[in-house]
């Protein structure tokens, strides 16, 4: 210090004040820069989510997160990403009880849903769907009546069903086998919304039937036809699973012919 010649030595007090001022200035600058470039650190979490989606996220973080991962981005070998699947897919999987999955197998099967109360189930499925919808978009099931009206609805719905659905789900919506343990399920328990959601989202191995392929009106006609098919009474009183003529033929062969044979034996024995 003493070697700095030609200068008036500053006072000790002034030097100390100057150090403090520089330090404060540096701190303010650093803090300001940090605040400028990282504004969200202390901001409200997920500001883009609606209230319904936040409620859905709460449910998701309780029940779905272990397989589908944080923010529904999926967990390798456990559950796929749900970004872009849309609320239709969520509603179908949750309300039909397929999700939460019981175990990894050929395909998820319908079972009693997570929430046993139907209203609670419907509400929570919609909240979850809203959350997934706001995360990545995707197909949505419209609200309101999903049945079609009009004189030729059933005929048109039946035609569309036979062209598009019956190859896998069979002519009476009883379902059928696919490869390696997979199968097209029976539609016996499917609701309007579930059928609509399935067509839109193509769950598991079902092909997707987008609105350009089957218009919303055509989807409604198909639903009306399916539900009418299910309400229809089986003329014999017992539909045998409605799998078709093979079952019925086998039943009448095994039961009916055996009965006739025993009746013939009985008559002959009485002679």
């Amino acid at each position: 210090m003493s070697t700095r010649s030609g200068r008036v030595p500053r006072g000790r007090a002034r030097r100390r004040v100057g150090t403090v001022v520089r330090l404060i200035a540096a701190l303010i600058l650093a803090g300001g820069l940090y605040a400028a470039f990282a504004p969200g650190v202390y901001a409200e979490e997920d500001p883009q989510l609606s209230q319904a989606a936040k409620d859905g996220k709460a449910i998701f973080d309780n029940t779905c997160v272990s397989c589908h991962g944080r923010n529904a981005q999926g967990v390798t070998d456990r559950g796929p990403s749900l970004i872009g699947v849309g609320s239709a897919s969520v509603e179908f999987q949750v309300t039909s009880g397929r999700m939460p999955l019981a175990r990894q197998e050929a395909q998820a099967e319908r079972k009693p849903p997570y929430w046993s109360d139907p209203e609670e189930l419907d509400q929570n499925a919609r909240l979850l769907g809203q959350y997934i919808q706001e995360l990545g978009g995707g197909p949505q099931v419209p609200d309101g009546n999903l049945r079609a009206e009009g004189g030729n609805t059933l005929a048109r719905g039946g035609e569309l069903f036979r062209v598009n659905c019956s190859s896998c789900h069979a002519f009476s919506a009883g379902g059928g086998a696919l490869s390696s343990g997979k199968f097209a399920p029976s539609m016996a328990a499917a609701t309007d919304r579930q059928i609509y959601a399935a067509m839109l989202s193509g769950p598991q191995n079902m092909p997707v039937f987008g609105d350009n392929q089957l218009t919303p009106d055509e989807k409604r006609e198909i639903i009306t036809y399916i539900q009418n098919l299910k309400e229809d009474k089986d003329p014999g009183g017992w539909g045998l699973g409605r799998i078709g003529p093979v079952t019925e033929g086998l039943a009448i062969f095994v039961v009916g012919v055996v009965a006739v044979v025993f009746a013939a034996l009985w008559i002959a024995g009485k002679s």
Binding site: N164, P207, F209, G210, N212, Q213
Partner: peptide, 13 residues
């Protein structure tokens, strides 16, 4: 049929 008419993962006869 236009390409838009069949969704990815969809099929049409």
């Amino acid at each position: 049929i236009r390409p838009d008419d069949v969704s990815a993962g969809g099929q049409m006869t």
